[in-house]
Design a protein around this nucleic acid. Structure first.
Lengths: 314, 314
DNA sequence: GCACTTTCTGCTCATATGAGCAGACGGGTG
DNA sequence: CACCCGTCTGCTCATATGAGCAGAAAGTGC
């Protein structure tokens, strides 16, 4: 009889959800009392036969957000829906939009925002509304200025975010990765750079993304490292990079020598921060996202539904 | 402000459908009155942002059924959901199940059921329950007995359906298509064949499927026609076959000479019937389904959601 | 700036729905 | 066959929701 009840619950669900009939009407159609209909409907829901989806570019997945907060110990999580999405580009754009929304509604408003750069964060800067906050200063937390046009967007991103909030942008005038460690030490010792790094270390909030460890990395594009370097890093266990530093799935630095040549905030500075927001979207970034979250690099994660489900292991 | 209301309606929908909050609670979260929340929710529904799907192999799509009845003038339409379906095979199986259900619940119970044959109808016969009706006789309406094992299922189908209803099966002892028209005339004149055809013409209901006009046709498999014949038929506008007769998109016979060599009920006999049930599923059969429905070959259509949507032109 | 129309808001009231409970039912078990 | 235990049924009652309406607000044309 269980089998038969299941079928009945489907018939009831059709009439209720597709034909907008009341449980009473359904009762007289299926020759049941309205209470029985109510129970069948509840049963159909409990069995997962009723799937309700909110189809909208700005839709979020609150239950997944809650599970992320609870299971992974995040202060906050923002998960955008991937329902009806056409490709990774759209997913990234939706996520960037959500990050912009999150920044806008953030209270208390941070005085200084430490910022990394990349395609995702550029997208966030575009989505922010003019006047999104009343005075927020932005400081770059890792190097990468104008080595080529792609890296040039690093400056644009910082300046855009600051100017839309009526604040100042402080750029870090250094390449992301230097060829020799001596050069890196020298540049860090320079007053203009040291001042920026000092400011970066004391920012009240951080906003960063992560890159996948593959040939499409911005660091390869920008010429800081070669495709072969990346292959080697992957062999050593790298899953991606955060503010220019390549990490393995536990969030540890993969290649300390390379890391020593990388200019910018240390990962531990990020881990000490009370508010660090990671914006990570797209199927290629599931692994880095996992590393970022599990090693405590962020307190807030903005991501897409698929990545979130991957993090939760289902 | 419309833009802003849309976003609010999405936030409200998230809280309502994913977090099971009451409209009142949502009101206090979003700082709105509960009536405003109700209106936002109604708006979200009206804009199609809320998608409710019933995910179950036996789920039907009642609104599409209604539109099929209204727009295409069918007496009845049964549309199974394609939600979460893996391939055409599953779609066909679901549709066959629905056809079996429909037959079982059919009132008044037909005394004699005219039947064609094919993979789909075989599937229907399998899904019917023992004792699905109290005494229904079955008569084959087109030829095709045991030329090879595939065609052999024609007899099995008819016998199964009849025996599960405690009735008699009457087989049409003839090939589907003969090579020479004289042979066809001779076989039709034979008393044993003529009697079956007479019975077929006076059946109280018909159940048939349709084949796509392609190389996978049962008629090619069974050796009644060659793959080249099919190519030629398609060139002449054939979209598929019904009870062995190839029709174009208007439901007209494509090749009168071939048709004259085909044994069985005429299409016009089907069109005159008060109850003829077509069971057609799968993406390859959208075109035939359109021809069958628009030329009035069936009064009842059992099909899948995708095919139905194709018929409705969207 | 004023009269007019249209849209929006917060309400009352009727209805639909879910929670919880007492009794009916069913089917093992001694 | 009587008994018990778990499940199911139909109910009452509290709550959530939608329809409809009067007044407020916001446009619109002169």
């Amino acid at each position: 009889m269980v089998e038969h009840d299941e079928l009945l619950s489907i018939r009831a669900a059709e009439l209720y959800y597709e034909e907008n009939k009341t449980q009473d009407e359904i009762g007289s159609i299926l020759r049941l009392t309205r209470w029985k209909v109510g129970r069948l409907l509840a049963q159909a829901k409990a069995n997962g036969f009723i799937r309700i989806e909110i189809v909208h570019p700005r839709a979020r997945r609150l239950p997944i957000e809650r599970r992320l907060r609870e299971k992974l110990g995040l202060t906050d999580a923002i998960v955008v829906s991937s329902a009806g999405v056409s490709g990774d580009d759209e997913l990234q754009s939706r996520t960037a939009q959500a990050a912009a929304d999150y920044l806008t509604s953030l209270r208390p408003i941070p005085r200084t925002l430490g910022l990394s750069w990349g395609r995702t964060l550029h997208d966030v800067s575009v989505h922010l509304k003019q006047g999104w906050a009343p005075g927020v200063n932005v400081v770059q937390i890792n190097g990468g200025v104008s080595l080529n046009k792609r890296a040039g967007t690093a400056a644009t991103t910082a300046v855009t975010i600051a100017s839309k909030a009526g604040g100042q942008a402080t750029l870090l005038p250094s390449p992301a990765i230097l060829e020799r460690i001596e050069t890196k030490r020298a540049i860090e010792a320079d007053r203009s750079v040291a001042a920026v790094l000092e400011m970066a270390a004391t920012a009240s909030a951080y906003l960063f993304s992560a890159g996948a460890a593959d040939q499409n990395s911005v660091h390869v594009d920008s010429g800081y490292i070669t495709a072969d370097n990346v292959t080697e890093l992957v062999r050593k266990g790298a899953v991606g990079d955060v503010i220019g530093r390549y990490i393995d799935s536990n969030g540890n630095i993969v290649d300390p020598a390379l890391d020593d040549r990388t200019v910018g905030l240390r990962l531990d500075d990020l881990r000490r921060s009370a508010l660090s927001i990671a914006v990570i979207a797209g199927s290629s970034k599931h692994a880095v996202a996992g590393a970022v979250v599990s090693s405590g690099l962020c307190t807030v994660l903005v991501t897409d539904e698929d990545t979130a489900n991957a993090l939760l292991g289902d």
